[in-house]
Amino acid sequence: MVQRTLTLDHEQRRTRVAAQLIAQPPPATTPVAANRTLHDAAHKETLPGRTVRAEGAPATGDQQADEVYDWLGVTFDFYNTAYGRNSIDGGGLPLVATVHYSVDYDNAFWEGSQMVYGDGDQQIFKTFTGPLDVTGHELTHGVTQYSGGLDYNGQSGALNESVSDVFGSLVKQYHLGQTADQADWLIGQGMFTDAVNGVALRSMKAPGTAYDDPALGKDPQPAQMADYVETDSDNGGVHINSGIPNHAFYLAATTLGGHAWEKAGRVWYDTLTSKKLPSGADFVTFASMTYATAGTLFGVNSTESDAVREAWATVGVKVT
């Protein structure tokens, strides 16, 4: 009896292995998959906090932790599918995130090795975990970091911010299956409470129009180099002047049409990850490199490289 069972098992195993070989030929390379871990800071500021969900584990029931788990997965999938990038560092970096950071914290940030999300104060901000583009924006700070970085002040800092907005918006467009003309090109849509007069934090389509509120003031983003804001706050206005390169990307993407991550996004991604982009790049340097990248990808006098040059020219940045 014992012998018979062993024999049967052996046969079953052989059959099963044979079936697997037919159904699933071994992949040429190891398949890549997100490796996510969610933590809860329980309103303290110690990172990473208590582990609440590991990769593959069922939903926690905590809406914020589960939203972030999903958005980390979508962002991972976007970078992998669109650009063949395995996670933030290109080498399968585990994705770690902490929710419920601090008290009434109106922010989310990339800490250098993990994501951190506040709950929002519920007066101005109702959520930082709800909109996918927030997670896309923050993880892209990690991509920029692992690509050699863009110094976080002045024009290079505004480029760092803009690149995060660009890919934050592209992750959302990818998730929704939108073409450039269907996208809202907004950053942070759905974050404000109903008390705030505004649709989002930033608009790549029309910088300076995202909000106009008695308490918050008016969206200060320029769309033109002529309106570049010189300031000492916010590391030289990195969240203000990002409007200029944001609008250049919008113009290139809508001129080219289709899925924005395929052409304009590919040009920006290849420029960011070329290892040739100086960390102190100014707008002209970055613009010129996107133009060169478009030429390499699509041809020197191609529709694509012309669109990139024209987009920068329209915002007052002349490629060299």
Binding site: D106, N107, A108, F109, I124, F125, F128, V134, H137, E138, G188, M191, L201, R202, L216, G217, S233, D234, N235, V238, H239, I240
Partner: peptide, 12 residues
């Protein structure tokens, strides 16, 4: 105290 920066870039 003037606070700037953050994802939102709002000044308080």
């Amino acid at each position: 105290v003037t606070r700037s920066g953050g994802f939102a870039g709002l000044v308080r």
